[in-house]
Nucleic acid binder design. Structure first.
Lengths: 135, 135
DNA sequence: AGCGAGTTGCGAGTAATTCGCACAAGTTAA
DNA sequence: TTAACTTGTGCGAATTACTCGCAACTCGCT
């Protein structure tokens, strides 16, 4: 057998719960643990919230998902593949927009040059007011 | 009397608790509600946590303080006067550094031009790795 | 002084996340 | 294929960070 499951490659066991959590994150784009749990329950109703939390953490450790803080309390998770955008959180309507990371390239460069600070653009929440709410 | 207390000017009552919360925020630079409470207790030991939370909220409503989310769970508050910098949160050591807002001017402009998104730079947490931890 | 709305303290209530543990399931090797 | 080992799951309790309701209090006005 040439192919191993991606979870096996990371040294993790392949359980239905774990696969479902991962695919839920991928399907949802970005979601809170609660939302992931809800999504997973569509195919695996008995799943426990703790299991979702633990798997999100585990998957984050091996780099398959990542979390961001979008301003309010909870963290939101998204798949590692689509770390190509940053999040624009609107403080008025609560919507979350995307923007390609290169709009920040200059900014990141400034921080690196002037402060030696390596910005993690993917873990980036930008707070403000979206175009729709500005009106 | 020509002068009114700044809290009076905002239509708030002047209570020792309220004053202490405000000056604690100013003294601390940026702090969690918990840290503010601790600071206040140095001069007013009996203060209740609820009171701190309520005053932070009240003071925020009248624009004397503001809060930011620095990546982990809780909010941190800082005085409105010193909204002249953004926060560089180090994911490795947890330290919070400052940088003047103009390093982001270009970035903010980009978002405004390309997406109509008005970034609130003061409510801004930048996540990454600080110079000390990069080494 | 005295009145009334705004505040405080306190305790209960909530929401989100973590932990400990016993049992079940995925893997590996024989 | 099966026994044995190890990791993962479910569940309930524990924790943490806040919020709320309410009675007592006090600030600011007359």
């Amino acid at each position: 057998m040439a192919e191993k499951h991606e979870l096996h490659q990371k040294g993790l066991r392949l359980t239905p719960q774990r696969e479902l959590v991962l695919s839920a994150v991928r399907a949802l784009g970005h979601a809170t643990p609660e939302e992931v749990a809800e999504k997973v329950r569509q195919t695996h109703p008995g799943i426990n919230l703790s299991t979702v939390y633990r798997n999100l953490e585990t998957l984050e450790n091996v780099g398959l998902v990542q979390h961001t803080h979008l301003g309010h309390g909870g963290a939101t998770y998204h798949a590692a593949e689509e770390l190509t955008h940053l999040h624009l959180v609107c403080g008025t309507c609560g919507s979350v927009g995307d923007a390609p990371i290169d709009v920040a390239a200059n900014f990141v460069q400034n921080l690196s040059d002037d402060y030696g600070f390596k910005t993690d653009v993917t873990h980036f929440a930008v707070y403000g007011t979206c175009a729709a709410c500005v009106k």
